[in-house]
């Protein structure tokens, strides 16, 4: 009996690749911790320890397709809680804000039962219509428009967008029966692209793209990151997904753009509120939103591209 059959039963073809990549990620975190110990850099150590925890949770949550809604539902919960803590909300918003939490459970329930039609309209249609109603019941008109807008936007960012990652897990890759390869590709490409953009930006510097929103973002970082991501995706995606080498490169470049947008959108949010990190729940990284900001843009784009092309 070979490894992948032992772990996941029949038709789990991408698994050896998937585990190779997960192994690399875990290896990276361990190396990071060792480096932190040797350099006696507390910052590096704390960061790596958090990475290890994230990777452990992620591995567990993607172990089987049925686990994914639980993992990403939990991430949505943390992101939502952090977001509404940052925002200035009115006491009258409590009633509407409360319903966002059951909405997480309901949204991921549709994911779990693979009801695509409901998954795709529940937040943009039903919750969208319900939130203003709940705010009206609270009978506070001052600041009503802002609250209705903000609460719906928060739900879209933290619940709807992120739930796409869990639904990807349910999309059967040809001959495999589940979407672990998609999820791994998306998450690895999104995470590494952030790193690539950061490194290229540091190495080359140069003109900034939008200094008023995010002073650290340079054209060199953006383009260098995009090139590196495209190159990596050209090799990685054919291993894990039905995408060809050429299409993989294209998807890599697209995800780089989307990741950048997600990043600067969150920068604008933090700048508006006047905070540097979105929270403190991930020691060494800041908050949850600082980690998943790119994913809120890359997940829906990657999902719908893949859905259109292959399913």
């Amino acid at each position: 009996m070979n490894l992948h059959q032992w772990i996941a039963g029949s038709s789990y073809n991408t698994l050896p690749h998937g585990f190779l990549v997960l192994g690399l990620m875990i290896g990276g975190a361990v190396v990071g911790m060792l480096a932190g110990l040797m350099l006696k850099s507390n910052e590096v150590l704390i960061r790596s320890r958090t990475w290890l925890l994230i990777i452990a949770l992620f591995s567990l949550g993607t172990w089987r397709p049925g686990f994914a809604p639980w993992l990403f539902g939990f991430i949505s919960f943390l992101a939502l809680r952090e977001f509404i803590t940052l925002l200035e909300t009115r006491p009258a918003d409590r009633g509407a804000l409360f319903w966002l939490f059951p909405a997480i459970i309901i949204q991921y329930f549709w994911v779990g039962m693979q009801w695509y039609g409901m998954f795709i309209i529940f937040i943009p249609v039903w919750l969208f219509l319900f939130i203003p109603l709940r705010l009206v019941i609270a009978e506070e008109t001052e600041g009503f428009i802002r609250s209705a807008g903000v609460i719906n936007w928060v739900a879209m960012m933290t619940i709807f967008s992120l739930s796409h990652v869990a639904y990807l897990m349910q999309l059967p890759v040809v001959d495999v029966g589940h979407g672990l390869g998609y999820v791994l590709s998306l998450v690895i490409m999104t995470a590494l692209n952030d790193v690539f953009q950061f490194i290229w930006g540091k190495l080359l510097g140069g003109p900034k793209i939008i200094p008023k929103v995010s002073p650290g973002k340079t054209w060199s970082g953006f383009l260098g990151g995009m090139g590196t991501s495209a190159l990596l995706a050209a090799f990685l995606l054919p291993l894990l997904t039905p995408y060809s080498h050429l299409a993989g490169a294209g998807v890599g470049a697209l995800l780089a753009c989307c990741g950048f947008i997600g990043d600067v959108v969150e920068s604008a949010v933090k700048r508006d509120i006047g905070v540097k990190d979105s929270g403190t729940s991930l020691p060494g990284h800041g908050g949850i939103l600082d980690r998943v900001d790119s994913l809120t843009y890359t997940a829906p784009v990657f999902f719908h591209l893949t859905w259109y092309l292959f399913h």
Partner: peptide, 15 residues
């Protein structure tokens, strides 16, 4: 006090 203010019975989790 934001998560469960005085007089409210509905808990909204803030950090």
């Amino acid at each position: 006090g934001k998560s469960l203010p005085r007089g409210s019975f509905v808990l909204v989790p803030f950090c």
